[in-house]
Design a binder for these strands. Sequence first.
DNA 1: AAGGCTGCCATGTTCTTCTA
DNA 2: TAGAAGAACATGGCAGCCTT
Length: 292
Amino acid sequence: MEWQQIEYFQKVAQLQHMTKAAEALAISQPALSRSIARLEEELGVSLFERQGRSIILNQYGKLFLKHADRILKEVEITKKEIQSLLDPEYGVVSLGFLHTLGVSIIPDILSGFQGLHPNTKIKLYQNNNISLLKQLESGEIDLCLVHHPLGDPHIEWEKLWDEELFLMVPINHPLAAKESVTLDEIRNEPIISMKPGYELRKIADKLCRKVNITPNITFEGEEVTTLAGLVASGLGVALLPDQKDIDEEKVKKVHVKWPSCKRQIGLAWYSERYLSPAVRRFMKFIFTRYRS
DNA sequence: AAGGCTGCCATGTTCTTCTA
DNA sequence: TAGAAGAACATGGCAGCCTT
């Protein structure tokens, strides 16, 4: 069954006149007659009652018309939806970002972009680095703000800014009185860290190796907020990015003057996937505004 | 005379086979 | 293996026939 046959049938059914329908469709009457005959042959039933010159829709034709109308309408709606997705002004951007960015940079990005393009819809997905990269690979999200996605040749990544990592200590801890510390000062401290595999854990381990200390990890977690909560309870110290929901009455963030404790945040996208005009415009906005 | 159907033909597309 | 050639099939137009 051809798409065209359904359109032809709909026109004949609407006009119930083969010649007029052929004129409306800009084809010859015999061509239309044959097309309808082929459709009827495929369905195994006549769709029209032929009474002399007149062709009248029968019960099968009425049923088929009901579905044909729906099919054609659905296709029209789909075409419009696709067009709206392709239109940068009305498109959708699915953006993933790390938990730690949720209260800092994301509101700024949203207000900045939506101020310029109010009709572009932005869907937000908050997750950890590994999960975000999986979502990017599956096509669930178009872009994500993450650390460097090491090892995946299909993922493009461009650095935007450095995010400082602070030594988070309980408010009554001796180091809390200091404005800055060196990392080797936590040599004998119980350390609260992300679970192995997380990017923050890899960075923390690397920094510890750099200052020749073996971290005494007492607790492991998956969320920065959770780790900060454990610090607040006096269970240890942690190397974490700043986050607005950290309780400053119980946790003091201390600048690490040596070694430089930073992690790189960048924009990632899947290189082999089609990026809609709205997504490309969002990328341009991000790079223009946030690339350091 | 008007309108639908059928035979024949032209054209375009797809699939298969052959050849370099 | 890629490109060319031919076969098969689908579609649509013209002319003519049949029915009303």
